[in-house]
Computed example of a mutant assay.
Amino acid sequence: MLVRAWYRQATWLWLLRPLELVFRVVVQLRRKAYRYGLATVYRPPIPLVIVGNITVGGTGKTPVVIALVEALQARGLRPGVVSRGYGAAPGARFPHQVSDRSDADQCGDEPLLIHRRTGAPTVVDPDRSAAVSTLLASAEIDLVLSDDGLQHYALARDFEIVLMDALRGTGNGFCLPAGPLREPLGRLAEVDYVLLRGSDDPIQGVRYDVQGLRPVRENDAGEQAAPLPGSAIHAVAGIGQPGQFFSTLEEAGFVVGKHSFADHHRYTEQDFAAFADRPIIMTEKDAVKCRSMAHAQMWYLKISARLPEPLVDAVAALVRSPA
Results as ranks from 00 to 15, higher is better:
residue 195 L to A: 12
residue 55 T to P: 02
residue 198 G to F: 11
residue 284 E to Q: 12
residue 304 S to N: 13
residue 13 L to Q: 00
residue 237 A to I: 08
residue 138 S to A: 08
residue 54 I to K: 08
residue 44 P to S: 08
residue 291 R to S: 13
residue 95 P to H: 03
residue 51 V to L: 06
residue 112 L to Y: 09
residue 62 T to W: 02
residue 131 A to H: 11
residue 137 A to I: 00
residue 173 G to C: 05
residue 119 G to T: 10
residue 161 I to D: 02
residue 158 D to G: 06
residue 164 M to N: 06
residue 246 F to R: 02
residue 302 K to R: 15
residue 177 P to G: 07
residue 61 K to I: 05
residue 190 E to L: 08
residue 251 E to C: 11
residue 78 R to T: 03
residue 190 E to Q: 15
residue 204 Q to F: 14
residue 6 W to S: 05
residue 37 G to Q: 03
residue 321 S to T: 11
residue 143 L to H: 06
residue 118 T to Q: 03
residue 260 S to H: 05
residue 12 W to L: 04
residue 203 I to E: 07
residue 286 D to I: 14
residue 84 R to I: 01
residue 4 R to C: 01
residue 139 A to D: 06
residue 9 Q to P: 04
residue 209 D to C: 15
residue 301 L to R: 07
residue 6 W to V: 09
residue 64 V to N: 02
residue 138 S to I: 02
residue 204 Q to V: 04
residue 143 L to S: 09
residue 227 P to L: 07
residue 175 C to K: 13
residue 109 D to R: 07
residue 19 L to M: 10
residue 40 T to L: 13
residue 262 A to E: 05
residue 117 R to V: 11
residue 152 H to F: 01
residue 165 D to F: 11
residue 240 G to K: 12
residue 225 A to H: 08
residue 149 G to P: 00
residue 323 A to S: 13
residue 163 L to S: 03
residue 166 A to R: 14
residue 100 D to Y: 15
residue 133 S to A: 12
residue 289 K to C: 03
residue 302 K to N: 03
residue 138 S to N: 13
residue 199 S to H: 03
residue 160 E to R: 15
residue 252 A to N: 04
residue 78 R to W: 03
residue 258 K to E: 08
residue 137 A to G: 12
residue 210 V to I: 14
residue 72 L to A: 01
residue 166 A to D: 09
residue 263 D to A: 02
residue 41 V to A: 12
residue 259 H to Y: 12
residue 98 V to W: 01
residue 57 G to H: 04
residue 23 F to I: 03
residue 302 K to Y: 03
residue 73 Q to V: 13
residue 54 I to R: 11
residue 138 S to W: 07
residue 223 E to F: 07
residue 133 S to Y: 12
residue 263 D to H: 03
residue 242 P to D: 04
residue 105 D to I: 04
residue 104 A to H: 11
residue 177 P to Y: 01
residue 10 A to C: 05
residue 52 G to R: 14
residue 104 A to G: 09
residue 118 T to Y: 00
residue 38 L to H: 10
residue 92 A to H: 13
residue 115 H to L: 13
residue 124 V to G: 06
residue 75 R to H: 01
residue 245 F to S: 00
residue 238 G to S: 09
residue 301 L to P: 06
residue 217 R to C: 09
residue 221 A to V: 09
residue 261 F to A: 02
residue 194 V to K: 04
residue 103 D to G: 13
residue 159 F to R: 07
residue 179 G to H: 00
residue 275 F to M: 15
residue 232 A to L: 04
residue 240 G to N: 07
residue 254 F to V: 04
residue 24 R to W: 09
residue 191 V to N: 05
residue 203 I to G: 10
residue 282 M to T: 13
residue 162 V to I: 04
residue 301 L to K: 05
residue 19 L to H: 01
residue 180 P to W: 08
residue 289 K to E: 00
residue 215 P to V: 01
residue 198 G to P: 15
residue 123 V to G: 13
residue 4 R to T: 06
residue 160 E to G: 12
residue 236 V to P: 08
residue 209 D to G: 09
residue 64 V to Y: 07
residue 85 G to A: 00
residue 268 T to D: 13
residue 175 C to H: 08
residue 319 V to R: 10
residue 6 W to F: 06
residue 241 Q to L: 08
residue 150 L to V: 10
residue 4 R to Y: 07
residue 168 R to V: 11
residue 77 L to N: 05
